[in-house]
Computed example of a mutant assay.
Amino acid sequence: MTLLSTRLLPSITAMAVIVIASNILVQVPFTPFGLGDVLTYGAFTYPFAFLVTDLTNRWYGPAKTRQVVYVGFAVAVVLSLVLADARIALASGTAFLTAQLVDVTVFNRLREGSWWRAPLVSSSLGSALDTAVFFSLAFVGTDVPWVTLALGDFAVKMAMALVSLVPYAGLMNAMKPSGALAR
């Protein structure tokens, strides 16, 4: 394993843990404040996948970030098939891969602008896509109130995209970008 690929292990590990946790937690209604029909606990964990993607993109560029997405996707889907419902795991994998690759592309196009624009816009677009794909694949045709859950999930993802700007700002300069960023 090269030094650079070894450096990607924390991102890959974080990505897999976030997705697996989210796949388990999306099956658990968020009952405080009577929100069980509108929200699941997975809405609070999954947005951190966008933070991992955006920081990895900032530090290593889009080519290495795509590697993190692909490996994180593979690990998370395999483990989710064991730890979560198969329909959830497959819907999650499809939504994750689509949304994260959109996030990488949009972030990279906006990376030279204001420090907050790339992570906020890419996470917002990725979150919208992830929500639409995941909830429609995971719950359509079931008695789960998936449209209201999707709306609640998306609202939390938007709030988390804003909140995630704080750790993003603190961590984005923790490591210097590695040389010329490969596209």
Rank of each mutant, 00 (worst) to 15 (best):
L3Q: 14
P10Q: 09
I12H: 00
I12C: 02
M15H: 12
I24M: 10
I24Q: 03
Q27W: 05
Q27G: 05
V28R: 12
V28I: 15
P29Y: 10
F30N: 03
T31G: 10
G34Y: 07
G34Q: 05
L35M: 11
G36Y: 03
G36H: 06
D37Y: 10
A43W: 00
T45K: 04
Y46L: 04
P47I: 01
P47S: 02
F48M: 05
V52Y: 04
D54Y: 01
R66K: 12
Y70P: 02
V71I: 13
L79C: 12
L79G: 10
S80T: 07
S80A: 13
L83Q: 08
A84W: 01
A84S: 07
A89D: 01
S92T: 04
G93P: 00
T94E: 12
A95C: 00
L97K: 02
L97P: 01
V102M: 09
V106H: 08
V106S: 07
F107W: 10
R111M: 11
G113M: 10
G113C: 09
R117H: 11
P119Q: 08
V121F: 00
V121P: 01
S127P: 01
L129Y: 09
F134Q: 00
F134N: 03
F135I: 00
S136Y: 06
L137E: 04
F139V: 02
G141C: 10
D143Y: 12
V144H: 08
P145N: 11
W146L: 08
V147F: 13
T148K: 13
L149P: 05
D153G: 10
A155R: 07
V156R: 02
M158E: 04
A159H: 06
L162V: 15
V163R: 09
L171A: 10
N173D: 14
M175G: 11
P177W: 05
A182V: 13
